[in-house]
Design a protein around this nucleic acid. Structure first.
Length: 427
RNA sequence: GCCCGAGUAGUGUAGCCUGGUAACAUAUAGGACUGUGGAUCCUCUGUCCCGGGUUCAAAUCCCGGCUCGGGCCCCA
C-alpha cells in the first residue's frame, strides 16, 4: 500500500472539524450558558493537559483501551496519550494537589478529547466534553443536585426533548449475587441487558440454571420504571440501603429540585468496574444512533490512583452532540451584532475616523471600519451584511461642521451629531 | 473493524444511466454609482475528492484509496 503520491495529505484528518465563525458563535454561546449553570451550582472550573501518561488511561480502563487511544512516544521516550475523556485526568489532578481542599469539592471543566473511533454524526475523533466531579460527599442531596445540574445544563442550553434515566449498579450486582451468578455469567449478561435484549437475557438465565420464577422476576425488574417493583426483589442489606438512598434521591429530585421528568431504569449498566451505586444518563431522542448527551454516576477512582478514599460522582456531557441536538430541533441561536460600522468617505478623513473608532472601542463598543476605501453604497451594504446596528458616515460635509452622520441601520434614520457627543447618541 | 449511500467553484445544485466544449444559482471583488444598504444590470475570480485502468476521448464506465452521511461494533 503506497500512498506517497496521494494528495489527500493536505485534507482535514478524518473525524476532525474546522469551525466557521458562525459555528464558533453558536458553540461559545452554548458554552457560556453551560459555564454559568455550573457556576450557579457552586462548581469551579479547572483545566488539565490535552495529553497524559498512557498509563493513566490504561489504569482506568484496562489494556483494551489502547485500540481507541491516540498514543505516542515523546522524544524522551515517555508513553503518552491524548486524553479520551476527562474524569481520569481530573481525579489524577485531585490526588496530586487537591486532596486537602475543603469538602465537598465541586469541579467542572470543558475540554477536547480524542478517540480513535469510526466517525458519525455527533461522533468525532476530536470532540468536546463538558463535565464535573463532586468529591467528598455521597449524600442523597448531593447526588440529587448533581442530576439536577446535568439536566438543567441541557435544558438551559435550549434542548427541548430530553430523557433522563436513573439506575443503580449496586442494586443490580447484588441481585446478581443473590442469584449466585458467576462473574463470567454476569459479564455475558451485561451487554444484553444494556441493549434491552430481554429475551436473550431470559434464555441465558435458563442456561445458567436459574429457576424460572427468578429469571422472570429479574426481567421484570430490568424492565420496570416503578421503584416499588424493584423493592420487591431485594433481599440483602447492602442493596436495601442503596435502594432507600435511591428513593431519597428521587424524592429530593422531584419535591425539592423540581425535576419531574425522569425514569427509573435498572438496565443502565457500565462496562467498567469502578462505577458503583448511582448511574444516570440523559439522551436526546431526536438524535439517531448517537443520542446519548450525558452519562454520569458515582465511581471510585481515587484509591486506584493512590489517593485517600473519598466519595466521588460526576457526569460528562457531549458538547458537540448537544449542538447537533439543538440544530436538529431548529434552535434559534442568537445573531451577534456589531454596534457600529464607521465609513470614512475620503482618504484624508481616515485618520480622524480611526480616532473615533478607537474612542468607541475603548468605551466597550464593538466597532469596525471600512478598510477597503469603498464607496458609500457598497459600505452600507457591507455594514448590513455584518449586522451593524449603526453606521457612522464621515465625509467632508460632516468634517466641516466637526460632526458625523449616524445612520440607524434598522430604521434608516440619520442624524448629524457633533464628534464630541457621538458616545451619547449611540447608546 | 463491518454493511449501505454519497462526494462537481466559498455555499447549494444540474450534468453521470446513454463517454465528446464543465453548467446554473448564490456568495466574494470591481464597475454602472464622485454621498446613502438588503434592488437591478455588467465584468473578473473560482470547480469535477485522490490515484490507476479502459478509450481516439472520462465528471460520466471499471478498480483501489480517502472523506462525509445512515446503520452495526464500541462508547471510559
Amino acid at each position: 500500500m503506497i500512498y506517497l503520491y496521494n494528495q489527500n495529505v493536505f485534507n482535514l484528518p478524518r473525524g476532525t472539524r474546522d469551525f466557521t465563525s458562525k459555528e464558533m458563535q453558536k458553540r461559545r454561546y452554548i458554552e457560556e450558558i453551560m459555564r454559568s449553570t455550573f457556576i450557579s451550582f457552586g462548581y469551579h472550573e479547572i483545566q488539565t493537559p490535552t495529553f497524559e501518561t498512557l498509563e493513566l488511561f490504561k489504569a482506568k480502563s484496562g489494556q483494551e483501551i489502547i485500540e481507541e487511544l491516540y498514543f505516542f512516544k515523546d522524544k524522551g521516550d515517555r508513553d503518552l496519550a491524548l486524553r479520551p475523556e476527562l474524569t481520569a485526568p481530573v481525579i489524577r489532578f485531585y490526588v496530586e494537589r487537591l486532596q486537602m481542599e475543603p469538602k465537598p469539592l465541586k469541579l467542572f471543566y470543558f475540554g477536547n478529547c480524542y478517540r480513535y473511533d469510526r466517525p458519525q454524526k455527533g461522533r468525532y475523533r476530536e470532540f468536546s466534553q463538558a463535565g464535573c466531579e463532586i468529591i467528598g460527599t455521597d449524600s442523597p442531596e448531593a447526588y440529587a443536585e448533581l442530576i439536577t445540574l446535568a439536566y438543567k445544563i441541557l435544558k438551559n442550553s435550549g434542548v427541548e426533548n430530553l430523557k433522563l434515566n436513573i439506575g443503580n449498579l449496586t442494586i443490580l450486582s447484588s441481585i446478581f449475587n443473590q442469584l449466585k451468578l458467576t462473574k463470567e455469567q454476569q459479564k455475558y449478561l451485561i451487554p444484553l441487558i444494556d441493549k434491552s435484549m430481554f429475551e436473550d437475557v431470559f434464555d441465558a438465565l435458563k442456561d445458567f440454571d436459574i429457576v424460572n420464577k427468578d429469571a422472570k422476576d429479574l426481567i421484570e425488574l430490568l424492565k420496570t420504571t416503578d421503584i416499588k417493583i424493584v423493592n420487591k426483589f431485594i433481599k440483602n442489606n447492602l442493596a436495601k440501603k442503596e435502594l432507600e438512598k435511591l428513593e431519597k434521591i428521587l424524592t429530593l429530585l422531584e419535591k425539592a429540585f423540581g425535576i419531574k421528568h425522569f425514569q427509573i431504569q435498572m438496565n443502565i449498566v457500565r462496562g467498567l468496574d469502578y462505577y458503583k451505586g448511582l448511574v444516570f444518563e440523559i439522551e436526546a431522542p431526536i438524535l439517531g444512533a448517537e443520542k446519548q448527551l450525558c452519562g454520569g454516576g458515582a465511581y471510585d477512582l481515587i484509591s486506584l490512583f493512590g489517593g485517600k478514599d473519598s466519595s466521588t460522582a460526576g457526569f460528562a456531557i457531549g458538547f458537540d452532540r448537544t449542538i447537533v441536538a439543538l440544530e436538529s430541533e431548529n434552535f434559534k441561536f442568537p445573531i451577534t451584532k456589531m454596534d457600529v460600522y464607521v465609513i470614512p468617505l475620503a482618504e484624508d478623513i481616515i485618520e480622524k475616523a480611526i480616532n473615533i473608532v478607537q474612542t468607541l472601542r475603548d468605551q466597550g463598543f464593538t466597532v469596525d471600519l471600512d478598510l477597503l476605501r469603498r464607496g458609500l453604497g457598497k459600505s452600507l451594504k457591507y455594514a448590513s451584511s455584518i449586522n451593524a446596528k449603526k453606521a457612522i458616515i464621515i465625509g467632508p460635509k460632516e468634517i466641516e461642521k466637526d460632526s458625523v452622520t449616524i445612520r440607524d441601520m434598522e430604521t434608516g434614520e440619520q442624524k448629524l451629531i457633533k464628534i464630541k457627543s457621538i458616545i451619547n447618541s449611540i447608546q
